[in-house]
Write a protein that binds this DNA or RNA. Sequence first.
DNA 1: ATAATATCTGCAATCGTTTCCGTATTTTAT
DNA 2: ATAAAATACGGAAACGATTGCAGATATTAT
Lengths: 341, 341
Amino acid sequence: MSAGVNLKELAAELKLSPSTVSRALNDSYEISEATKKKVISMAEKLNYQPNPFARSLRENKSKTIAVVIPERISSFFSKVVDGIEEITQQYGYHLLVYSTHEDVDREKKIVNLLMNGRADAIIMSVSSQTSDISHLTRLHERGFPLVFFDRICPDIPTTKFITNDYESGFEGTKHLIQQGCRKIAFLMLSKELSITKDRYRGYLDALRQAGLSPEPQLNITCCQEEEQNIEDIRQMLLSPNRPDGILSSVEKLALATYHAVKRTDLKIPQDLKIISFFSNLSIASLLHPSLTTITQPAFSIGEECAKLLMKKLTKPRQPDLPNQVISIPSKITIRSSTIAI
Amino acid sequence: MSAGVNLKELAAELKLSPSTVSRALNDSYEISEATKKKVISMAEKLNYQPNPFARSLRENKSKTIAVVIPERISSFFSKVVDGIEEITQQYGYHLLVYSTHEDVDREKKIVNLLMNGRADAIIMSVSSQTSDISHLTRLHERGFPLVFFDRICPDIPTTKFITNDYESGFEGTKHLIQQGCRKIAFLMLSKELSITKDRYRGYLDALRQAGLSPEPQLNITCCQEEEQNIEDIRQMLLSPNRPDGILSSVEKLALATYHAVKRTDLKIPQDLKIISFFSNLSIASLLHPSLTTITQPAFSIGEECAKLLMKKLTKPRQPDLPNQVISIPSKITIRSSTIAI
DNA sequence: ATAATATCTGCAATCGTTTCCGTATTTTAT
DNA sequence: ATAAAATACGGAAACGATTGCAGATATTAT
């Protein structure tokens, strides 16, 4: 199939033993410079490519990282994966990318498949459905290197990378209040999610600090159907108790809100102000009116995950991944959607 | 590392030989039902997971497909990969995903890395810089299964999946003409790209049919810097010879156009109509005004690529991938950006 | 009763590397 | 001059699975 020669054939061609050739190619001190040169040039001439599986079998590592994300069509997750690839590629590592489609059953299948060692580590963000995390604890307890980002499992003692969710939720809400909002809704993906909880705490504290009280009917949990989300939001906007501000903790719900508003007589920002966690900056400024955003450092998060793993996997005797949460701050960009009139 | 037992240990536990256990697990006719049952239940109990590298080494296949795309932050490519994953995952295949970032040098590195057999096949869309395709012909000549989609290499005799680029370019242009446009600009990624050529032919033929003549200064080729693209488009819009219609053959240039228009006094669709190849439908209808789109069947394209490959790779003696171009039609959705006033 | 066949299982080679040994030759030390 | 150490290489075992071949037992046929 793949036409190249193998080590034995290369050795035969050179009239050397496979072990010598292997050592020469791996720049072993046991081999003279002269033969190293010969071996290398012949290897190039015959286009020798070491078989990755033989090597993986022998070395018990695959030079592969698995990345598990909830969805691919998302500028946030795409940028994180770009950041991961930027680093891992420098180390010659490959990336297996899996999407759970926000489905915890698929997540479990994927994680269980990965237990056989096909990848040397996993970088993941859990699905919005994930509440039972036994598949993940099992993985971690077996000593499998596991790093979380964004949607993390706080109970699993490993390294997690997030943005400053609490502060961002707090500041975002505070901004709405400063712009005159008094009834602020909170849009989320799922109550179970770590990011939801942290951002919600920030939201609550900001309300409290301003002497406002949270109202349960101003919390909307997202479902998988975009149309359903739009309708749910529209219903809220049409209710007598409608909000005058919205903090969306997810990009897709901000878009759903714009759709919902189009179906009402309300105007942003006159009747309703909105701020959202949002990664697609080019789009944010094109929305009408342009959207005030909390931008997570997606690319950096990916890079940091990968840097940590590369250190652990490529240096000889590294300690376990420390149990800590590393936060990289988001940036709030104020645009028209929250301007006080 | 990964705690599981291996075949030998499992066999020892069962007081059987590794070969019997292997056969039992692979449901060989040579093994009695009784022992099969025993083996399987013990395998589950000890959580036996076959080592993928040992198996790959032996069988000379990896159950892995490599997907090479020009960029990750793109709803089109994300959907294609989703489509691929939908199929491959049913067959137990894994996906290595690489982004070239529209850089032909990175593309070459990736392709060369893949030649060692880490993946059983490649599904790819070439970078906008790719004109020398020697790295790809070499791969194909070695018998490596290779499938192209969207941005294809016409000269490599393998199967390619595209949308009806010519017709879509033709129909899109015709639509603009019907809405009253007389000076229609064409926005593209690179002149070398197969999709550019086909869509451009459609554009030219539609102009010709309407008795309009193409003007070279109304063609804009995209660069990698978004800001530069916006400025280039703005310059065109400010020129005395400015277009009254735009056919954008790429999503990102439609967005750049919206940005550029915001920096002028022009109004869409009054002063300028625009239609674009575009995959992010949710965004298209939120743009202001909403964007008339030519939507490629991204998910289906991914599925079809994967179905073809799965057939070739999992059935015993399959022929080579036939040299043909399979076209799956796009769909034009008319929105406000091309409405005649 | 003996041969032939069917049924089940084990031995050992194989895939392509890496690496622990061992060994032959050369260099350095005493 | 002889021992010790350094240098350069080859042989063979491993990694963990699959599978051709052969052997053992049980069943059936003659």
